[in-house]
Design a protein around this nucleic acid. Structure first.
Lengths: 223, 223
DNA sequence: GATAAATCGGACACCATGTCCGACCAATAC
DNA sequence: GTATTGGTCGGACATGGTGTCCGATTTATC
């Protein structure tokens, strides 16, 4: 006898707890499959679900599609990145080289541990408008974060403010993209040069502005 | 009467000229469709071909798939980017602020004019291994280019070499990603702040290294 | 006007997607 | 025990894009 009260459409009285458990299984499955050499895009929902130990049907009970899953992951990643900067930003005005370096290493560590998820995020953002927006928000939050640091630095009288505060809109892209390219899934400990280089760019852009160039000199070559 | 000599498999005695003409039509179609709001990934081969004024069948005569097309485009884009740096790199040791700024503007201009193609390149690289490799090569070539400039700067006795030459592996990612994010399809003339910011990062990272920070100071906060 | 090249339309098998449903399997309630 | 219920499962379904193939038609060339 078919149940009449049964309503599939607005089913979700699924406990948030259960949803999170499934999400975790899917995250593990993603890591596993990406480690096996596939890109996230070419992993089918079926493959993903099976590897996570659930059926394709069940996947669609909890997530609209792969993009929906990635969207949730994206929130986590964003938070991790923000946290990674917390040993520098709140004290930016009195930070030394080593503080910035540590922040950079923290960021790299996120990409080391969550390389597959970061790849999934970036890949999906390429074709899924909703995820693209989330990825955009991730960058915006990083920019805001760096801006807080910048403001603290310039408010401090030790440092002569650089003319252009918009550098903060530029630096996070260097960080994100370099970590993505060089540090994804790789131990940060083997990437000393990367930590050093990114630290240097941050340092010289934010803490080194006293040495103003002569901006008025005419270009020596034609563009 | 069916032609016996006709061999479809290794057909391409298609003149390179014709291929380029078709490629150009497809490039235009891509611009048109992307301008219409779609992402390159969600444009079907049929739609792309029809907009370019050819049939789907003909598309497959000249290109294996969309990735093949994007691959060819990628070469062009890479070249344009390299050329964009030519007003700076060869004279890097005697360059002034305005020279770097001009290079940055040139780069932005590439993204202004070819925004759709750049998007197609990045999107496709996300799931097509072959295109991903080409996109990787694009970055590598930019790194090499910046390195040439760096070597000229450090060889010159005017500038005290910075400790870490690996900054050159980091800077192109800032340039590429920022142009992609901020300057794609947008007039460079309205993005003064971007040009200024990117120039500043380049300048302070490459020409401003005399002011060495105290790298030995212990971190003030815990990571 | 004959011949070959280039293009076209259309059919084909294939595969992933997202939706839907009935069957099943627990645990709990009566 | 037996019935109900929330959750899972397998499978069917329509849909839509892919890449391949071929026969037919158009276009260019001499």
């Amino acid at each position: 006898m078919p149940s009449v009260t049964r309503n599939r459409k607005d089913s979700p009285q699924q406990s948030a707890k259960r949803r999170e458990a499934i999400e975790q299984s899917l995250v593990n499955a993603t890591n596993e499959l990406v480690a096996g050499g596939q890109s996230f895009t070419e992993i089918s929902v079926n493959e993903l679900a099976r590897t996570a130990g659930i059926s394709r049907s069940t996947f669609y009970v909890y997530f609209r599609d792969k993009g929906d899953l990635v969207g949730r992951i994206s929130q986590q990643m964003t938070n991790e990145l923000i946290v990674a900067t917390s040993c520098w930003i709140p004290y930016a005005e009195k930070a030394v080289w080593a503080d910035i370096r540590q922040t950079v290493l923290n960021l790299m560590s996120v990409y080391e541990r969550h390389g597959a998820l970061m790849a999934a995020l970036i890949e999906t953002a390429a074709y899924d408008a909703e995820v693209a927006e989330l990825s955009r928000q991730m960058m915006t939050r990083l920019v805001d974060q760096i801006r807080v640091g910048y403001d603290r630095i310039t408010a401090d009288n030790k440092h002569n403010p650089v003319g252009n505060g918009d550098v903060v809109k530029v630096l996070p892209f260097m960080l994100e993209r370099c970590c993505y390219f060089y540090a994804r899934g790789r131990p940060a400990s083997e990437l000393e040069w990367l930590a050093e280089s990114m630290t240097q760019v941050l340092w010289s852009s934010l803490y080194n502005p006293e040495l103003m160039p002569d901006k008025s000199a005419p270009p020596s070559m034609v563009g």
